Computed example of a mutant assay.
Amino acid sequence: MPLTFEFDPAFSPALRDGITALWADVTNAGGAVGFVPPVTAEEIRPDLLKHLVAIEQGRTRLLVGRDEDGEVAATAFLTLNDHRLLRHWLWLYTVMVHPRHQSQGYGRDLMAATADAARSIEGIEAIRLTCRGGTGADRFYAACGYKEVGRIPGGIRVAPGDDRDDIVMLLPLSPAGA
């Protein structure tokens, strides 16, 4: 059964807890979403709070995917640029699909829903993201239409002696239906 996506959902403690649990589960399954396993929900909360503050300030938008039981199964945070010369594109952060839902096409569904959400924001012409080298995420994003536009060798230090490339990818958006 496909995920149901909601852009800019009403925030609640249940949604907060669902995102926190998703983030911890994705990290602990080896996902490259800003932490290195093992991680607890309490370690995730301060980073989620930063996203929530940005949402409250109107700088970030949230896309949530729910499974057939209504549980948070996927997320993406779309962050707007506040600099006048960069307002035509946005950043995509914390793209996650719960490990129990992976390999079912939900990641591609999430990326398509993210592109649709970005197109609904006036003036947005592209989505930019970064991903950690050595994880295969760059191949996944390329399969979703993103192009590598930059790479910082060793830009991400996962652990002492384990530096990964910081890969910058871009998806130009065309008007819906074009």
Rank of each mutant, 00 (worst) to 15 (best):
T40P: 00
D82K: 10
M1L: 11
M1K: 11
D138W: 02
G31W: 01
P172Q: 15
P175H: 02
G31P: 03
S103I: 07
L49S: 15
L85P: 08
V36A: 13
G145D: 09
P13V: 01
L80Q: 15
L48P: 04
G154E: 09
D25E: 07
T20M: 05
W23Y: 01
L62A: 04
A21H: 02
T40D: 03
G58Q: 04
L15K: 03
V53G: 14
A24S: 08
Y146T: 05
P99C: 07
T4H: 13
H98N: 09
G154C: 00
V168L: 14
P175G: 06
P172W: 12
G133S: 12
T130E: 15
E43N: 10
T130N: 11
E71Y: 13
A74V: 06
P37H: 06
D138S: 11
G155I: 00
Y106R: 11
R59Q: 15
D165T: 10
W91Y: 14
Q104T: 11
G105V: 07
W23P: 07
P13D: 14
N28W: 01
T114P: 01
G123V: 01
F5S: 03
I124T: 03
Y141W: 09
I121K: 12
D67T: 04
Q57L: 11
I19W: 00
G58K: 08
M169Y: 03
Y146N: 07
M169N: 08
Y146F: 15
A73F: 08
I124R: 00
E56A: 14
R132Q: 15
F11D: 14
V158H: 13
G155T: 00
T4C: 10
A41N: 09
V95G: 06
L15E: 05
W91M: 13
A73I: 00
A176T: 12
I152Y: 09
V39L: 04
H98F: 06
H101R: 12
Q102W: 06
T75V: 08
P46I: 06
A14F: 08
R151Y: 05
Q104G: 13
A137N: 09
P160I: 06
R151A: 01
A159D: 11
R119T: 07
A29I: 03
S103V: 10
T94V: 14
D109V: 09
G34K: 06
A73S: 01
F35C: 03
F140M: 08
A54P: 00
P99K: 10
C144W: 06
R66F: 11
A118Q: 02
W23E: 02
F7V: 05
D17C: 00
P175M: 03
G123F: 04
W91E: 15
A118S: 07
L22P: 02
V168P: 10
R59E: 15
G161W: 05
P9W: 01
T4Q: 13
E6G: 10
Q102H: 11
A74M: 07
V158N: 15
H88D: 04
C131D: 08
D17H: 04
G105S: 08
V64S: 05
A126P: 05
F11P: 05
A54Q: 07
H88S: 09
G65D: 03
